[in-house]
Amino acid sequence: MSQSIPVLDLGPLQDGAPGALDRLGEELRRAFTEVGFYFVRNHGIPQSLLDDTFAAAERFHAQPLEAKLALRINEHNIGYMPMRGATTRVNAVGEVARPNANEAVFFKRNLPADHPDVVANVRFRGRNQWPAGLPGFREQVLAACDAFEGLGLRLLPIYARALGLPADHFAPFFAEPMYTLRMSHYPQQEPAAPENEYGIAPHVDTSFMTILAQNRIPGLSLRTQDGDWIDAPAPEGALLINGGMMLRRWTDNRFLATPHRVINRSGEERYAIPFFMDASYRAVMAPITADGSPGRMQPITYPDFMTGYQRANFHHAAEAAGEKVELQGA
C-alpha cells in the first residue's frame, strides 16, 4: 500500500524548481481520484515538534478524570470528550458500531475574549479551554496548530492546480481557516472486545484536509477502492494527509473521501494528534465542477455542515439539542 499512496515531495517547490507546482498538482489529482490519501515529505515541520505534541497528548490524558471533566466539551466542540462520548453515524461506513473507544480533547484557533465572534457566542468560534497544572501544554498546542496550519496553507496552491485552477484560487476561502487539533487516547482493546467495537469506527472525515502525524503505535487502517482494509504505512519523516466530506463536496464528488478506522490491539496505549483544516467560517463553498456547470450539491458554509454533523455524532451535542442519545450495545 505504501507504494500505491502517492508521496508528494515539497522540496522542489520550495527550491523554486520550474514546473514543480504543476507536477505536484498532477500527483495530488491522482492521489484524490485513485486513493484518497497521500504522504508529504519535506513539509517543514520538525520531528521534535511532533514528538513533543504527542507527549503533550499523553500528559493531558494522564490527568485524573476530574481534571479532564473540568474542561468538558461544549457547543463549540472545544474541550474534553470522555471515553465513548461519540458514536459514528453521519459519516459511518457500513452499520453503526458501538460508541467509539477513545477519549479526546479538542482545540481550535485561540481567539481572544474580546473577539466579536466570542462576544456574540458564534457557534464553533468559542475560546479554548486550557488545563491547569500542565506547564507548557498551552504553548505546545499553539505551536503545533501554527505549524499544521502553515503547512495546510502552503499546500492550497497544489490543490488548486490539481483541479485545473489558478494557484491562488483557494486563498480567499482560507483567509482565516477553521481548524481543530484533536488529541486522542486509544486505550488497549481487549481481544475479547465485541466485534463492532472500535477505537474509531469505520468513517470518512468531515474536513477539507486532515494532517496526520505518523504514530509509532499501529492501529490505523484504510479501506482501498477494492474494499479491502489494510494497515496504514508509516514511512519515517512523512505526514499522512487525506480529504474528507468537505473536500469531496466542494469538488463535486470528484475527489475521494477514503474510509479509515482505528483498532488498538497493540498491547500499548495509543495517542493521535490529527489536525482538521477547513475554509474560513463564513466562506461559501460552491461545488467546483470540471466544466464550470452547476454542481450536484448546494453551496454550503462550515457552520451549516458542522451543526448537523455534531448533533448526529457527538453525544454532548445531541443532548444539548434535547435529543435522546442511543448507545448501541450499551
Rank of each mutant, 00 (worst) to 15 (best):
L181F: 00
V204Y: 08
A192K: 15
Y186R: 06
A171P: 12
Q188F: 13
E176K: 06
Y186M: 07
P172Y: 01
N196W: 13
Y198T: 11
R154V: 01
I211L: 14
A201S: 11
L212T: 06
H203D: 03
Q189K: 03
L220R: 03
M178E: 01
L151S: 04
L155I: 01
I217H: 09
N215S: 12
L220M: 11
L181C: 05
L220D: 05
F208M: 11
G199F: 03
A192I: 13
L153N: 08
E195K: 15
F174E: 04
P218L: 09
I200M: 14
A167D: 07
H185D: 04
R161Q: 13
A167G: 06
E195S: 15
S184Q: 12
L151M: 06
D205Y: 00
P177K: 00
I200V: 15
P202G: 01
T206M: 14
T180D: 10
L222I: 10
S207P: 06
P157W: 12
R154S: 10
P157A: 09
T206H: 14
E195G: 14
A162F: 07
A175M: 09
L151V: 04
H203V: 02
F173D: 14
L163T: 09
D205S: 02
Y198Q: 12
I211Y: 08
R154D: 11
E197F: 08
F170T: 00
R161N: 13
A171Y: 12
V204C: 13
R161S: 14
L153A: 09
L151R: 02
T180K: 11
T210W: 01
